[in-house]
Design a protein around this nucleic acid. Structure first.
Lengths: 225, 225
DNA sequence: TGTACATCAGTGAACGCGCGTTCACTGATGTAC
DNA sequence: TGTACATCAGTGAACGCGCGTTCACTGATGTAC
């Protein structure tokens, strides 16, 4: 995954100060700082993602996001209709990125069975590494049509990986989508329990990744024949 | 100042009116109605549970709960330290009831394998029938120590059912708790995806219960040997 | 090339609202004598 | 048994706060001539 510049959360230096990230580093369209931010909608999405990750959907406020991006509370309304629209934008990004991760994981290497295992790992890694996205995608109140489509897209990658890995016929007539759904649910369950601190942990206790990978393995093995 | 009889909330019938639920129906401890509610903490928990189910943790307000219970906004503070304490009480109840459901499901009948399957069904049924409890248990911000203990209790019922059904040794040396965790995560995943409307549905599409029961089955079968 | 002007993307103060919570109070209940 | 009194469990008004959002505005930018 590309290291995209972390900008603009929590302690944004005043515009034009020496530490100001708006001084023309990489992802900033304009090298000049000033009255206009230049990349505000991007920065807001990034800030929202961070706040969502940190405080959850309830702890996220538009004003905080604006402050994190270094602008006044009214500025976001130039780019997003309201708070829900901003969260929606985070969710959209999340789904896009999620699908990309899955697609990458599925296409790397040559062995389909390995590819499928990597899919599960990618799922967990995404939930763990991008809690902001994950929260916006699954936890937000406003679940729109876009999300369903995007979710369906990600899901189809999973099912495809499954059939490629094991063959569409190898589940004894069972619809591979059913197994896909089960894998999806298991992944989601592990991810959310882990995020909520509801999974036991400590020495000798399996990690979330182990629980999932061995679970997916057992699930698929048990479903075949 | 005597004119104090007016409670002033929207739809609660005046004290003593024919429709007043405080007229001594069943669960009301006192047959007499009056200034004192008589069973307020109970009523508040019940109201909170309903609101949590209806609107989620974000949509739940203490004032609404008070109104639903037919008392003034200050009254809940006689029984609960603050809003979090009320939600915590709902969560506690939820865990108690949850464990009871699981225990019942596990102990009915004679065949351990059947018993184990019923455990999964009971899990889903609980999440579906008691969304208020489920929300408080897993979704609430304030996850206390009590919850962990109660959750551990419920979990141990699951693991016990598993070992009874299949024998502690039959998982090829794998810790039955690992399989228990996977079953738990799968159940939780199916339940939360279903609650969020994230599971496809329609004619010919498996229900949440089918997804889970067949998934648990595959999981256990795949984990053995 | 310079200048006038339209448009864009910000500002900062203010709004209305509804939340959780506190307050001094009062009506009802239980108890000691 | 009756009565005085302490305690309990409510009331209703008010508070401070921080939210989402709107407003009239202004500085910066892009463009036509």
């Amino acid at each position: 995954m590309k290291g995209h510049m972390k900008h603009g959360q929590a302690f944004v230096p005043p515009v034009g100060s020496p530490g100001d990230p708006r001084s023309g580093k990489g992802s900033w369209v304009r090298g000049k700082r000033g009255y206009h931010h230049g990349n505000l909608s991007e920065a807001l999405i990034e800030a929202a993602k961070g706040l969502l990750a940190e405080k959850g959907p309830a702890g996220f406020t538009l004003k905080d996001a604006a402050k994190a991006a270094g602008v006044s509370p009214a500025a976001p309304y130039r780019h997003f209709k309201d708070r829900a629209a901003l969260i929606g934008a985070v969710s959209d990004r999340g789904y896009a990125q999620f699908s990309e991760w899955l697609r990458e994981a599925a296409s790397a290497g040559t062995d389909p069975a390995d590819a499928f295992n990597r899919l599960g790992e990618a799922y967990l890694a995404f939930a763990a590494d991008e809690p902001g996205y994950y929260t916006a995608m699954f936890d937000a109140e406003g679940v729109g049509k876009t999300d369903h489509d995007a979710g369906a897209g990600a899901f189809s990658i999973l099912v495809e990986g499954l059939t490629k890995a094991y063959g569409a016929e190898s589940f004894g007539g069972a619809d591979p989508r059913l197994i896909g759904l089960q894998v999806w649910a298991l992944s989601h369950g592990v991810a959310t329990l882990a995020a909520a601190g509801r999974l036991p942990y400590g020495p000798g206790v399996p990690t979330a990744a182990e629980i999932l990978s061995r679970g997916v393995d057992a699930l698929v093995r048990g479903a075949r024949r």
